[in-house]
Design a binder for these strands. Sequence first.
DNA 1: CGCTAACCGAGACGGTACGTCCCGTCTTTAC
DNA 2: GTAAAGACGGGACGTACCGTCTCGGTTAGCG
Lengths: 187, 187, 187, 187
Amino acid sequence: VDPRIEHTRRVVTEAALELLGEVGYAAFTMEAAAARSGAAKSTVYRHWPTKIALVADALETLNEQPPPAPATGSVRERIDGLLGHLTRAFADSRLSACIPALIEAGEHHPEVASFLHTYSATRRRTLVALLREGISSGELPAHLDPELASLALSGAVVYCRTMTPAPLSPRRTRRLVDQVLGPRSRC
Amino acid sequence: VDPRIEHTRRVVTEAALELLGEVGYAAFTMEAAAARSGAAKSTVYRHWPTKIALVADALETLNEQPPPAPATGSVRERIDGLLGHLTRAFADSRLSACIPALIEAGEHHPEVASFLHTYSATRRRTLVALLREGISSGELPAHLDPELASLALSGAVVYCRTMTPAPLSPRRTRRLVDQVLGPRSRC
Amino acid sequence: VDPRIEHTRRVVTEAALELLGEVGYAAFTMEAAAARSGAAKSTVYRHWPTKIALVADALETLNEQPPPAPATGSVRERIDGLLGHLTRAFADSRLSACIPALIEAGEHHPEVASFLHTYSATRRRTLVALLREGISSGELPAHLDPELASLALSGAVVYCRTMTPAPLSPRRTRRLVDQVLGPRSRC
Amino acid sequence: VDPRIEHTRRVVTEAALELLGEVGYAAFTMEAAAARSGAAKSTVYRHWPTKIALVADALETLNEQPPPAPATGSVRERIDGLLGHLTRAFADSRLSACIPALIEAGEHHPEVASFLHTYSATRRRTLVALLREGISSGELPAHLDPELASLALSGAVVYCRTMTPAPLSPRRTRRLVDQVLGPRSRC
DNA sequence: CGCTAACCGAGACGGTACGTCCCGTCTTTAC
DNA sequence: GTAAAGACGGGACGTACCGTCTCGGTTAGCG
C-alpha cells in the first residue's frame, strides 16, 4: 500500500544480496546492509527482525528455477541439462555463496532450515519427475528409485561443492548421470 | 617441554569442542571457550590467533576414522557397513555437529576448507578402495567409476544431513547402495 | 535535543571526577568510569574517544574561579587572599589531585596541555590585574613586572605542591608575597 | 660481584632512558624496556620491582648537577648562571621529559616522590647557599629569605615549563632574578 | 485539501565479543 | 644457582555490531 514500504524492502534486499556475495554470510552485517542501502538501521530492523530473516528474504528473490525445461530431447539429455544447471548454480551464483551459511544457520534456526529444505526439495522435485518419466517410458531401468537416485545425483553435486576443493565439472556431471542411471543405451 | 602448554591446549580444545557441539560455530565464542576451560582469554589467544584456528585445531582431535574395516564379508556388505558408519557419524557425533559450521567457515578460511577436504577425502578413500576391489573381483559392474560412485554415495548422505529435514535411515542407505552399484546379484 | 545525551554526559563526568579524586589519573579507567556511572562502556567511548578527552571534559566542570574578589582592602591583602585561595585549591580540591596527572598528560596530548594552559592563564590573569592596580596606585614598587611577579608567586605555590614534600603554608605564602613584592610599607 | 648483574643494570637503564625520551613515561613499558635492552622480562623485574623503580633508578644516572660552580663573578651573575642552567635543563634534557611523569607518579608512589624531592632540594640547595652568600656580603638585600626566594625563582621556571605553553626564555630568566632579588645595584 | 497516522532517517543506548597489549607471577631449561 | 625464555591469569584497551529505544520530519491517503 504505502509505496515507501515496498521501496525500502527492495533497496535493502538488493544491498543485502550484494553484500552477501562480497563478504559472505558470516561477515554480513545488518548495519552494513542498512548503510549500503541508504536505509536507517531502525528501518531495516522494522522489516526483518534478524539477520537470518533478511538473508532468507533476500534469497527468495534469487530462487529462480532452471529455464522451464524445454522438454525436448531424451529424458537422459534433459537430466543432463538439469544437473548441469545445478552444477553451474552451485558454482557461481550469489545464492550458492550463501548455501554453506544457510546450512550452518539452519542447524540452529528452524526457519532457515525450513527455507533450505523447501529450496532443495523444489529443485529436486523436477529431477524426480523427470526420472519417473524416464522409468515409465522405459528409457531408464525399472529398478530405479527416483527419490534415491535424485539424492545421489544432487548429493554428489552438493558434496563436491561443499566438501571438496573443486565442484563437479560439466563433463564429470554427465558421467555421474551414467553411473547412477546405468549406461546409456545404444541409440 | 613446559607442561603448562600441553595442559592449556588440552583443556581449551576440549572446552571448545563441547561448546561447538552445543551452540554451533556461529555462536561459538573465544571468551566462552576460555571461560569454560578456565584459561584466561589472553592464554587462549596466545595459542590460537583466531576463532577459526582454535576450531580447526580442536577438530583435528576428532579425526578418528571408522573401525579399521574388519574386511570380512562381501564387498557389498562392507560398503553397506562403511556407509552406515558414515550415516551414523553424521547423525550424532560431535564432529557432525560441527560439519555445517566447517562448511561455512571453509568458504572464507582456507585452513578450515583444507581440513574439511582432507577429512572427507580420507573418509572417501576407504570407500574408493573397496569399490575398486569389488570391480576387479567382478562383484561390482565393470563400468563403475569408483570415484564418481563414492561421490554419489557420500554425497547422498551429506545431502540428506544438510539439505533435508531428516538424515538417511540405515535402511534407505542400503537401498542407496543398490541404486548406485546396481542390483545385488543373486548369491 | 535527545535528553539521554545530556544525562549520559552528566553522570559520566561526575563519576569520572569522583574516580579521579580517589585513585588518581594513572589508575583511572574508562571501564571504571562507565561502571560507576552506570553507563555502558560503548556509551562512554561514543562521547569521549579517549581517557584524556573524558578527563579534560570532566575537569572543565571544576574550572571555578575564586570568589569574585570582594575588592575590599588593600591590594596587598587582596593578593594575599588570592594566593591563599590558590594554595588551598592546590592543597585539597579534586582538581588539584589531577594537576600532576594533567601535567604529565599534557606532555603528549596537546588538548590536555591546552586545557592546562588556559586554566593556569585564567587563574593568573586576576593576579596580574591586581598587581597592575597596585603598581599604578603606587602601593607596589614601580619596577615590578606584573607578569614575572605573578609567575614567581604562582610558581612557588605550584613548585611546593609538586616538587617538595609539603605545600606552602598560609603563613609562608604571606611571607612569599612580601619577598616578591618588596617589604610592606608601614601603615 | 657478578659482572652480569652490572651489565644487566647498565643495558636496561640505558634502554629505559631512551624509551622514556621517546615515548614518555605513560607509554613507557617494562616489556619494551626489556625487549630493547635484550634482557628477559623476568630479569628486569628481578632488579626493579616496578616501572617506577626502574625509571627512578635510570634517572639517577642523569642527576648531574650544574658545572661545579666556577664561583667567579658576582653573586648575582652566578645566580643568573644557575637559573639559566635550570632553565636549559628543563628545556631539553631527557630528565626534563620525565619530570611531569615523576610528578604524577610521585602522587601515588612515595619512593618516586622522595626521589623528586631530593632532586629538587639538591638543586635548590646550591641556590640557597648562593643567596645566603649574597646576603651576608651585602650584595643582596638583607630582608631576603633565601628559602622563599629560591622557591620563587625555581618555581617560576617549573611553572613555565609545566603550566604554560613556553618555558622561560634566558632573557626573562634574568629579569626574573631582578624581580625577586630587587633591582641590580649600580656597580 | 487538510489531518493524522505510519513510516522514515538519524543515532544514542546497554550489551557482548573482539583481538591486542601490558601487568606482575610463575615455571622450566640452559649455562 | 642464577639467568634467560616465555607461559600464565588478569584486566583495560578501543572497535564493531547487536537489537532496542527515542526522537523529530515527511508523506501518504483518509475524511
